[in-house]
Design a protein around this nucleic acid. Structure first.
Lengths: 343, 343
DNA sequence: TTGTATGCGTTATCAT
DNA sequence: ATGATAACGCATACAA
């Protein structure tokens, strides 16, 4: 890149001072500038293709105009999340509108060199949106208490940290109720991941609650665990089929995990939904294209990102911490994998 | 966030000058500093939790330490690309190792306010990795001629711009050869997207070449177009089935598009591979979990990103433009969707 | 071996 | 209405 024009160059070209240039270009209210100089400056800037230097600007403003979107997971898991791109799209759209950029980064907990705190300390970002935290995450708590602008996408076991989320328990309950309404009583559960994550805990509790409301006894033996990957779903399903359990339906709390489970069933020539009903969770973009199309719970991923970014930017610009969590509605999507009512 | 400590604070605490602090912290070679002051500075920095301010550092160094990863597509299409997360992972891993951050952004061509050039002019990034360019992209050419550090992930019709890519033609040929070796002669083609993209053009030409090498006459009527989405594959497949054509195999130059096509077949009770053979392209993470598991061409997405980032950072640090393109190998993945040899 | 002085490109506070 | 000038936090050439 050839050398860029500075404000001084524009000033020289227009025959005014740097201050005037700054006033004109930033549209300062108080100062009334003669239309003549105004035009001169504008033209000079245009001619020299002047754009303010981001570093210089951010140094003097004390702001980077950069939002961090960080995932509390190992990179391979983080990037495998099929809902993430939609969340990112929501964030970056809002960011873009407000003149912010977004840096994306997996930052697993307990990573010394690469902490959330460092991002603030080095002043790389103005604020953070943190996705998929563990229930206990002391660093987030500390940061919040130090008044760092930080929005959770998810939930942790600590009050008052502004968050954008869905009601996982309620959504899971909705999913299992659907299965129950279809006549299923023996319903297995495959968790999306370990119960260290609050979303997993909440989905399990929704499953349990739906069962109990229907007078079905909750049975630990029917609960299995995935780790967000199709492979884990493949394995979990094998375990179920290999056991003496004969569930007529399975609620899998992640479409991605369900993908692997479906694969097991395909291999063993077990038909869905004729032989077994499958209910997913997440509504990843391809669930509707699976064979059979997967019934699931729709998560408004784009809106999740959109809301998180808006809360954060509002916080940054208005200097006020959001007072309320933002809980978005989920939707039961009935496709074909659960079939219709059992005889 | 409470006020951060500056180099001056560290200097005061250690009882030395700011210069000394800088020397110690940046490990300047020439200057030999007494071990005593060295320790004093280190301890003071530690105690104050000092981290250099990114904006200030980048202003004085004339570098942002930020890499831009931009997609030449509309946001909704860009974020729907299921291979992208792996490419990002490759980039961000390398970036991270070298102390760079990555900003990700869809920047469609012809977007006035949001151009690649602006990113450089405002000095938001040190360099760019541009994914999925159209064959003709004047802005990229101009930028390259102005010596902007820019790596293509893909190819455009202009020589010498450093790029990281696969050999799309050869890969497509490989895929179609497999179909031919299985005994298929009537092979339809669904393009991943419009031929404005060179990857699409190249895949089509590979298809054509394989046909001709096998003495099969190329027929325009067998060529259909997707637009990277499952929906477009769904529609294309409907068109094929609705026509008088009766291909025994279809090469779909995108697994994502194939997903939709598979859905059409499922709905119409057409079995894969018994009734029709399907070959994909991309090897997105879930292709192996589909029913049936999809035969496809594996693209080393992570390595694509990894190489692009390495080339770019090398360019930035060594000040030398890469001289050679980096063409990565693809691999034919045989799973179940093509079946075995036809009788 | 360490300190002084200057510059990076902006914005913003003062005078004029 | 416009122009000097200071300040932001850091790195570094030069001086001591």
């Amino acid at each position: 890149m050839n050398k860029r024009a500075t404000a001084k160059d524009v000033a020289d070209a227009a025959g005014v001072s740097r201050t005037t240039v700054s006033f004109v270009l930033n549209n300062i209210e108080g100062m009334r500038i003669s239309e003549e100089t105004r035009q001169k400056v504008l033209q000079a800037a245009e001619a020299l293709n002047y754009h303010p230097d981001a570093s210089a600007r951010s140094m003097v403003k004390g702001k980077t105009f950069i939002l961090g979107f960080v995932i509390r997971q190992e990179p391979d898991k983080a990037y495998a999340d099929l809902l993430l791109p939609e969340v990112m799209r929501g964030i970056s759209e809002v960011a873009s509108e407000h003149g912010y950029h977004m840096i994306f980064k997996p930052v697993p907990p307990e990573d010394e060199k690469n902490s959330l705190t460092t991002l603030f300390l080095e002043h790389q970002v103005d604020g953070l949106i943190v996705s998929g935290p563990l229930s206990k995450d002391q660093e987030i708590v500390d940061l919040f208490n130090a008044h760092a602008p930080i929005i959770l996408q998810g939930r942790i076991d600590y009050p008052n940290i502004p968050s954008v989320d869905i009601n996982n328990r309620k959504a899971a309950e909705k999913a299992v109720n659907h299965l129950i309404s279809l006549g299923h009583r023996q319903i297995a559960f495959i968790s999306n991941a370990s119960l260290q994550y609050s979303s997993c805990k909440d989905r399990l509790s929704g499953y349990r609650r739906a069962l109990e409301n229907a007078g079905i006894i909750y049975d630990d033996a029917l609960v299995f665990y995935g780790d967000r990957t199709p492979d884990s779903g493949y394995q979990a399903m094998k375990n179920i089929l290999g056991s003496s359990l004969k569930p007529s339906a399975i609620f899998i709390a992640s479409d991605t995990v369900a993908l692997g489970s479906l694969n097991t069933l395909y291999q063993q020539n077990i038909r869905v939904p004729e032989d077994i009903a499958i209910m997913g969770f997440d509504d990843i973009p391809l669930s509707k294209h699976l064979a059979p199309p997967l019934s699931t719970i729709h998560i408004p991923a784009y809106k999740l990102g959109w809301n998180a970014a808006n809360l954060l930017i509002n916080w940054l610009e208005q200097e006020e911490t959001p007072q309320h969590d933002c809980i978005l509605e989920t939707e039961l999507i009935v496709r074909e994998s659960c079939g219709s009512r059992q005889k």
